[in-house]
Design a protein around this nucleic acid. Structure first.
Lengths: 199, 199
DNA sequence: GTCTATAGTGCGATAGAC
DNA sequence: GTCTATCGCACTATAGAC
């Protein structure tokens, strides 16, 4: 072949490297392209905009959400469907991905424009989850609420997962966050004033 | 004063009008500025970027979130604090604002770049809520989870509020969404039929 | 207020693969 | 010949530097 295969992957890898060393805004699209022997114009043919180079490997993991919802038992509640979906996605965040995820998250957190795109991706995940819940007969507004809560829980779990001192697996962390979600929303019973809140 | 006061407001109004009639991307910053007798440079002195012209009237409503949390009773649960915060913010969405909000939402929904910014604002709201919960002794990860859930509930309620056929007030819709959040997260128990919830 | 770098688009040309 | 990846160039708008 005249051109090397895997152009997109090479651009992605080069971009991550340059962003990590020189910063996102200090790295131009032309530099990324040139570092792998291509031109700026080619970069923009592969990625709709500069941020895309960090955010395009997600179509398959949206599918994991849908499959996770479909895999829940027939009489599952919306909460249980979400729980099943997150468990399915957690499987995609293995130990090998953790170092890469840490670098990527540092880059994203350091730049507002990237943080916005990350939020957008999360809302796509929520939309996917909501559609899967609709398909299983969950009505609105519960479906959207459940889907957004699920996406939020995943985001919180992910942030915890990439912390420097964190050793638990993604699945373990997600279970913990979902348990917290449950106890947050469940009203305390008037006859069980066990919990203390300081003011 | 040497210059007309309310420059920012005039730019905002002109931008909303032009975006609504010609579309967001088809309207340049220079056009907005010229339509009120100013230069492009002045536009960018008032707004950090083009999108900002639609998103800068919010500092006060972030404060309403904080005040709402502070106004909750001393023994309030995290959920009750969120509920109090949303009630405080709901007061800011009166009937007079509904037509404007509808136009604004149409513009934002029609453009991905604007939708991303909207999401960013929501996450700022969640961060503000989380800080207010911390101040009242709510621990992590409950505080973040509660704050994100609150911001999500508000977003769902807002979307409903601006629907063409919706006549309920924001406060009414928010109450409804929060009730749904509660029943979504509460596990079903065959042996414990629904009991009255204290809110 | 001017000047400039960068993001991003449109279009025609080129050079292999089939 | 067609198809596709790439280049090269001209261009506009944003946004920041001076």
């Amino acid at each position: 072949m005249r051109w090397e295969p895997g152009t997109k992957d090479r651009l992605r890898a080069a971009a991550l490297d340059l962003f990590a060393t020189h910063g996102y805004e200090q790295t131009t699209a032309a530099e990324i392209a040139q570092s792998v022997g291509l031109t700026e114009r080619t970069f923009f043919r592969h990625f709709g905009d500069k941020r895309d180079v960090l955010f395009d490997g997600q179509a398959d993991y949206l599918q994991a959400y849908t499959e996770g919802v479909e895999a829940a038992p027939q009489d599952a509640s919306a909460f249980e469907m979400i729980s099943s979906a997150l468990a399915a996605v957690a499987g995609r965040f293995g130990e090998d991905r953790r170092p890469y995820s840490r670098i990527r998250k540092q880059i994203i957190d350091a730049n507002p424009a990237l943080a916005e795109r990350e939020l957008h991706k999360r809302s796509e995940a929520a939309a996917t989850l909501a559609a899967a819940l609709h398909a299983r007969g969950v009505a609105e507004p519960t479906a959207t609420l459940a889907a957004e809560s699920g996406a939020t829980a995943f985001g919180i779990a992910f942030t915890q997962w990439v912390r420097a001192d964190e050793t638990r697996t993604m699945a373990e962390i997600i279970d913990d966050v979902l348990a917290q979600l449950r106890s947050f929303a469940v009203p305390r019973r008037a006859d069980h004033p066990a919990r203390k809140l300081k003011v």
